[in-house]
Simulated scan of single mutants.
Amino acid sequence: MIKHLFKLIWNKKKQNFLLITEIFISFLVIFGVFTSLVYYYRNYKKPMGLTYNNVWVINFQNNKQFHNTDSVTQYYATLTAMLKNMPQIKTLSYASSNIPFTSSTSTTRLIYKGQEIRPINFYRVGDNYREAFNMNLLEGRWFNHDDVVSSNRPVVINASLKESLFGNGRALGQLIDDSHDDKHVRKIKVIGVVQDVKDKGDYLPSGMAMYNRVDTSDMRYIGKLVIKVSPDADAAFESKLYKAVAGYMKEASVEIEHFSKKRESTNRSTLIPIIIFSIVAAFLIINVSLGIFGVLWYNINRRRGEIGLRRAVGASGGSVSGQLISESLILTTFSLIIGVFFAIQFPLLNVFNMAASTYVMAMFLAVAFIYLLVFLCSLYPGRQAAAIYPAVALHEE
Rank of each mutant, 00 (worst) to 15 (best):
N128M: 10
N59K: 09
E257C: 07
Q65A: 14
G169M: 02
N54D: 15
S206P: 04
T78K: 14
V193Q: 05
L373S: 08
G223E: 08
S160Y: 08
N59D: 12
L331S: 05
A368N: 02
K46L: 10
Y298C: 10
E257H: 13
H145G: 11
K189I: 09
G305W: 05
G339Q: 01
M219P: 06
I275M: 10
F237V: 02
S328H: 05
K261N: 14
K200S: 09
A343Y: 05
D232Y: 12
M219A: 07
T332M: 07
L373I: 10
N98C: 10
R109G: 09
R304F: 04
S164Q: 15
F133H: 04
I20L: 11
E22K: 10
T69F: 08
A171G: 03
P100G: 02
D234M: 11
S289Y: 02
S96D: 10
L225A: 06
I276A: 09
N53I: 03
V340R: 01
N98L: 08
K187C: 04
A132E: 03
W56G: 04
E131R: 09
P231A: 12
E131Q: 13
Q174G: 03
E306S: 10
K12D: 12
F31Y: 14
I276G: 08
E116T: 15
K84N: 15
V156R: 01
V288P: 00
V280P: 00
K187F: 13
H67N: 15
S151R: 15
S230G: 11
F24D: 03
K90I: 15
T270Q: 06
T332V: 07
Y44F: 13
I337Y: 02
T78I: 13
F34A: 04
R304K: 15
L50C: 01
S378E: 03
I99S: 05
S150L: 10
R141K: 14
L379W: 11
V245Q: 02
W297F: 12
S269K: 12
Q65V: 14
A244G: 01
L241Q: 02
